[in-house]
Design a protein around this nucleic acid. Structure first.
Lengths: 241, 241
DNA sequence: CGCAGATTTGAATGCAATCAACACTGGTGG
DNA sequence: CCACCAGTGTTGATTGCATTCAAATCTGCG
């Protein structure tokens, strides 16, 4: 699959793209890099003149307060986790891989040029950052007000729906390749509590083991346990862009 | 003060505005409405063709999960809490006043027209929504990983700095006009715990009573207690827009 | 094998929620 | 003027979810 297709598919899952827009996006120069876990791609406080497209693997934004890490967002293939650096000069959180991953840097200059030539690209990228915000609101509500069981189930729902919208997975093979430590840092819980909650959810048939990780056998049961409503992801039927 | 000045001042606090941009913004038609607490201005799930500028008072975005309310963001005068509805068709959270307030609705059509005439306005508004996202990331880290004392102090820091950047307050007169119930819903805690934590912080000299509400006497002490770094607010020295 | 990282389990602690009762405030209406 | 009321703030007692500490097990890997 050509590199740009990952981005195109991600964008197509949230907006209608014209032929010209697809062409413009496909022409963006990419600088490809392989990255490993525990080595941040972009550091907190950094000023960049590029944004980072995830090609393969899984990245996250994270920041540490009082010595404790909080994972702020998860970014599978097709995401541009630091697209906001296009208009915010300093990174307020670090960006790092959770798996061995491949990313591509796109210069802000090239992105701005693409937007100038195809204003629709600007609207779509703006929409990307707005959906990013909607996901933050959902996570904030989760961490603030949902139980541990609830939070965990909701995260599995969200990631499945996001991946499926890009054709990157299916229910039979889906699992989240996150360590229990990562899950803890994403959900604002301790690893020990994640461990026990995962066991509960497995016993309840909400989640199901998939090798080292967890997936699900029964989407309805998972969705009900999570009270999951995918509306906030603003997928597919594109809004009035 | 002319109505548009509130918006201009808010935008000027995060980006340099050209004369043409100021003129274009000042020409935006406003429909002014008075609103009362406990009556949402925009409901969760609503589709709008306007966005809402806060003129006076204080609004918040909030959503309820499992019957428990989470306040997602606070919006003083000059904010446009639902600017994202410009490119997201459905509201994922409700928007409501926490005080008797005055707001002005701006039609999406007029905003799009302003952006078309002055692309710099588009960049600035995009930046507004990106800072919105940065604040969500900060709140998420707070609720996920900070102690109750820490969270409370951090919120007071953030709101003071945001208001001061628009010349809306000064340290001597600053206070947050939120009930303890509102604070609890914003910080993911219970009202009872907020009450006790506020008493602690008052005893420690971090916060100080201001009539019914709380402000501070000693900014340094408050900032240290909060480990507050205002970088994420992206204020004043505007980025490369 | 030995090692580092991850998972699992047990036990103890503690922060925060919950339950419940009471005080305070401002506003309403008899 | 006072009774009443709703909303908010305060306090005490209890409960429990989640953390912390600690140790053992498991896993992949050099």
């Amino acid at each position: 699959m050509p590199l740009h297709d990952r981005l195109i598919r991600a964008l197509a899952s949230i907006a209608k793209l014209s032929a010209g827009e697809i062409e413009t996006i496909s022409a963006l120069p990419l600088r490809v890099v392989e990255v490993e876990p525990n080595v941040d791609v972009v550091h907190e406080g950094a000023s960049t003149h590029t944004s980072c497209l995830v090609l393969d693997g899984l990245l996250c934004r994270h920041k540490s307060v009082a010595g404790r890490r909080q994972i702020l967002s998860l970014h599978p293939s097709g995401d541009i986790p630091d697209l906001h650096s296009l208009y915010l000069s300093v990174m307020d959180a670090a960006l790092g891989p959770l798996l061995p991953s491949r990313v591509a840097f796109i210069s802000h200059r090239d992105i701005r040029e693409a937007i100038r030539r195809e204003p629709g690209v600007g609207a779509t990228l703006w929409r990307v950052t707005l959906i990013d915000g909607a996901i933050f609101r959902s996570w904030l509500a989760s961490v603030g007000r949902r139980s541990a069981h609830h939070r965990l189930a909701h995260l599995y729902c969200e990631m499945f729906v996001r991946l499926e919208a890009r054709g990157l997975t299916d229910a039979a093979s889906f699992f989240l390749p996150l360590t229990q430590i990562d899950l803890a840092d994403a959900l604002g819980l301790s690893p020990v509590h994640i461990n026990r909650t995962l066991q509960d959810l497995r016993r309840q048939g909400v989640l199901a083991p998939r090798g080292r990780y967890y997936g699900f056998d029964n989407w309805d049961r998972l969705q009900r346990a999570a009270e999951f409503d995918p509306g906030y992801l603003n997928l597919c039927p594109p809004g009035p862009v």
